[in-house]
Structures are given as structure tokens and as C-alpha cells.
């Protein structure tokens, strides 16, 4: 393989085409870099920071950093996985994530990534934020308690569905959240449909289809069958 079009990921030679990001090239080569807010079909957001790698000794987000010939990238090292575990714990304490009672359990990227990185406890004191649910839509339930601010629903609704149903707004730990683009702020007052791409993009259990929660029994779900690190395992359809 031509040395000018490859880089090193944990010692493995990864080919890339100019303009590809590190995570895009790694995924194409079947290598897993932990991530939550990145999805191959959408432009990188760069907010979850789980895909942080060390490039030539410096930290960087592999979803936004373009691959360069010969760069040396550290990925699944003890140091980086330790940081990722702490980031996962931050997600678990800032929201209300109760896996045993969540109908997304087994299909949830946050839960599956926590298993992959062997997160054993939330570690920090829980914040227990007060977040309202939105059940105004006939076919969709929004449970913001589980939101991880990945903004994939914003991208999917804007770029694929052409509806702009969601947007990110507000500041800081209490203010920042997904908003609904209707005068009432409720999903029922938008033209959102259960067939929209945005209805199936949520990596966690915020956007749920009503009356479908347990169509696939627990034990036979996406990450019950194979870990999230398995090749061709993507967070959402």
C-alpha cells in the first residue's frame, strides 16, 4: 500500500482518501473508534468528545479532524478509554438514564458504549434534572430525560426530511436542550411523521415510536446480539 495515503491507528495501517476524517477512514477499514454524536450519514457535530484520539501526541476529535498521510493516531489506549469512561459517566449523571425501565434498552448507543468501555458505575453524584416529556404527537413520544445533545435529530430533520422540526438552543448545563420548532414548542404541532428519518435516528431513548416499544423483545436487540464495536454495527438505521 502506498505510504502517502495511509495513517497509523493503534499500529494498524489505515487507508484513506483525501478529505476523509479519521473516523470515516477507520470505519471504512472496520476499526472502531467509540462515538455517540457522529453518524456516517451526517456532517460531524463534534460535541460528545467520545471519539477523542491522540494524533501525533495531541488530543483531537477524530470525527472532525481530516486524515493526513503518515499521522500516528492512538485510539483504544488505557489513557483514552479512561477519559471516555469519564465522559460516559458525565452523560449518565447529567440526565436521567434508568436502563431497566427504558424501552430503548438493548438498542441504545449510550448503554452499549458504556458496556464496551466497561463503565461499572456513574461515579459522580447524579444531577437529577427536571425535564418534561412531550407526548403531544399521536405516533411519537419524546422523553428528554435521556437526551445526550448529539443533535442527530436536528441534522436528520433538516438534511433528509427537509422539515427542520428540531433545533438546539439554550446555554449551559441547565439551558442547553433540543427545542421543537413550533409556536407551542410541542411536537404535536409540527408536521413530524413516524416515517421521518429523524424518527429513527436517536441513538438513545428520546424519540420513541408509540405502541412499538417491545416489538423486539429484550435479549434479541441490536446490542444483545453483538457489541457496538463489532464491524458494520451502526447506532441507528
Amino acid at each position: 500500500m502506498n505510504a502517502t495515503t495511509t495513517f497509523h491507528l493503534d499500529g494498524e495501517e489505515i487507508p484513506f482518501t483525501p478529505g476523509q476524517t479519521i473516523i470515516q477512514a477507520a470505519k471504512a477499514a472496520g476499526a472502531y473508534i467509540p462515538h455517540l454524536c457522529w453518524h456516517p450519514d451526517f456532517q460531524a457535530n463534534g460535541s460528545c468528545k467520545l471519539c477523542t484520539v491522540k494524533v501525533n501526541g495531541r488530543f483531537g476529535s477524530s470525527c472532525t479532524m481530516e486524515a493526513q498521510a503518515g499521522m500516528v493516531v492512538e485510539n483504544r489506549t488505557a489513557e483514552l478509554d479512561d477519559k471516555r469512561r469519564t465522559l460516559l459517566q458525565m452523560f449518565f449523571v447529567e440526565g436521567n438514564h434508568f436502563c431497566p425501565s427504558c424501552e430503548k434498552s438493548g438498542d441504545c448507543a449510550l448503554q452499549a458504549t458504556a458496556y464496551e468501555l466497561k463503565m461499572m458505575s456513574p461515579h459522580f453524584d447524579m444531577f437529577y434534572p427536571d425535564r418534561a416529556v412531550d407526548a403531544s404527537h399521536p405516533d411519537i413520544l419524546l422523553d428528554f430525560n435521556r437526551c445526550i445533545m448529539c443533535s442527530l435529530c436536528v441534522s436528520a430533520s433538516r438534511d433528509v426530511d427537509g422539515k427542520n422540526v428540531f433545533y438546539m438552543g439554550g446555554r449551559g448545563i441547565l439551558g442547553r436542550r433540543v427545542h421543537i420548532n413550533s409556536e407551542s414548542g410541542m411536537l404535536g404541532d409540527t408536521d413530524f411523521a413516524a416515517t421521518d428519518r429523524a424518527a429513527s435516528i436517536c441513538p438513545v431513548g428520546v424519540i420513541l415510536k408509540k405502541r412499538k416499544g417491545f416489538a423486539v423483545p429484550i435479549g434479541e436487540r441490536t446490542y444483545d446480539l453483538a457489541p457496538i464495536s463489532a464491524p458494520d454495527k451502526e447506532t441507528t438505521p
Partner: peptide, 21 residues
């Protein structure tokens, strides 16, 4: 810093609050 964090990225949004606590 907990007040000023915009909330975009996880380490700062949650981290500044954890440090404050």
C-alpha cells in the same frame, strides 16, 4: 466557568458543573 459554559461539548458542560459542586 459553570455559568459561562455554553453547553456544546460534554467535558465542559458537565465538567464545569462537577468542579463547581
Amino acid at each position: 466557568f459553570a455559568h459561562e459554559s455554553c453547553g456544546f461539548c460534554t467535558p465542559c458542560r458537565v465538567g464545569t458543573t462537577l468542579v463547581r459542586n
